[in-house]
Design a binder for these strands. Structure first.
Lengths: 150, 150
DNA sequence: ACTTTACCTCAAGTTAACCTGAGGTTTTAT
DNA sequence: ATAAAACCTCAGGTTAACTTGAGGTAAAGT
C-alpha cells in the first residue's frame, strides 16, 4: 500500500488529465515513472500531487518551464514530504502576491485612465502596471495634453 | 492635426510593438487602416489607444479573440470617444475583479492546502479556485485521509 | 539623381502545451 | 483461450500570437 505502482490510465483518471499529457509531462521531466515487465509506465503515488501542483501553478500563469525549475528543488531520491511542498508553496505565494498587486493596481487605475486623455504607452499604469518601460526608442513619447490622443 | 495619418513605423515606435504585429492585428480585425498612393498603411490616431487597450487586456490574460469581440462594441463609423472606452473598461474591471478574487483565494489557501494531506483534484481550492469541476469521470475521487496522498 | 530607409505581400517558421492517429504489444475480463 | 481494453512509440497536427525572410516598391535624405 506504500508507493503503489499506478498505471497511466489510473493517474489520468484521478487527475483529470489525458494520458498523452502524462507522457508529455514525463518527456518534459516534470514527472517520472518506471516500467513494468511489459514496458508500461508505473507511478508512485506522489505523482498525483505533482500533477495537482502543476495544475495549480498553471492557474497562476506559471509556465511548465519554470515549474520544472522549481521542481528541481524537490528531492529526487526520496518522496517529497510536506515540508518540501510547503516550500514551493511559499515561492508561489510571493509570485501570487505580486500578481494580485499588479492586477489590483491595474483595476484601480483602469477606469480613470482608460477613459481619460492621457493614455501613454510608456508611462500609463495600464500599460506598465508595475514595471518594465520599453527599452528601445528615442525617448518616451507621451500621449497627452500636447496631442489629441483618441 | 485631426485624424492624422500615421505610418506603421510611427505607430510601431509609439506603441512599442513591431510592424509585423500591426499587420497581424489588422489581419485579425483588431485595428484598421487605409492606404495611401503608394499602398502604404495609414492610421488614425485612435489606433494608438486601441493598441494600448489590447496590451492592457492581454496583461489581464484576455485573448485577442475576446478582445476582438469586445471591440465589436466600439463604433465603426466614428472615432470612439471617452464613453466608448469607459464602457470597455467597465467590462474588464469585472473580469479583473474576479481574477483578483480567484488569485486571492488561491493564495490564502495555498499554504494550508498544498502542505496538507488532503489535496484533491476535484475539490481542492487550489485546483478549483472558484469554479469548474471537471466534468468527466466516474465520480470525484478524493485524495485524502483514506489514502496516503504524497 | 541616387541611395538609404521604410513599406508591401506572402509563405513559412517559432514556442508552448498539448492532442491525434497509425501500427503494434500487454493486460484484463469472460 | 480469446477478445476487448489499456499501453507503447513515433510522427505529425493544432492553436495562439507572433516573427522572419524573400523579393520587390515607395518615400526620404543628401
Amino acid at each position: 500500500m506504500e508507493d503503489a505502482n499506478l498505471s497511466v490510465g489510473y493517474v489520468a483518471k484521478r487527475t483529470g488529465v489525458k494520458v498523452s499529457t502524462l507522457h508529455f509531462y514525463e518527456q518534459k521531466g516534470l514527472i517520472r515513472s518506471w516500467r513494468n515487465q511489459g514496458n508500461q509506465r508505473r507511478y508512485k503515488r506522489d505523482v498525483l500531487r505533482r500533477i495537482s501542483v502543476i495544475k495549480a501553478a498553471q492557474k497562476l500563469g506559471i509556465s511548465l518551464q519554470s515549474i520544472h525549475q522549481t521542481f528541481l528543488g524537490l528531492p529526487n531520491e526520496r518522496t517529497p514530504d510536506k515540508n518540501d511542498w510547503a516550500q514551493l508553496s511559499k515561492r508561489w505565494q510571493k509570485q501570487l502576491d505580486q500578481q494580485i498587486n499588479s492586477l489590483t493596481k491595474l483595476r484601480d487605475s483602469l477606469d480613470g485612465c482608460i477613459g481619460c486623455g492621457c493614455l501613454s504607452m510608456q508611462s500609463c499604469p495600464i500599460y506598465n502596471p508595475d514595471d518594465v518601460l520599453e527599452e528601445e526608442g528615442p525617448g518616451p513619447v507621451i500621449l497627452g495634453r500636447n496631442e489629441s490622443a483618441d
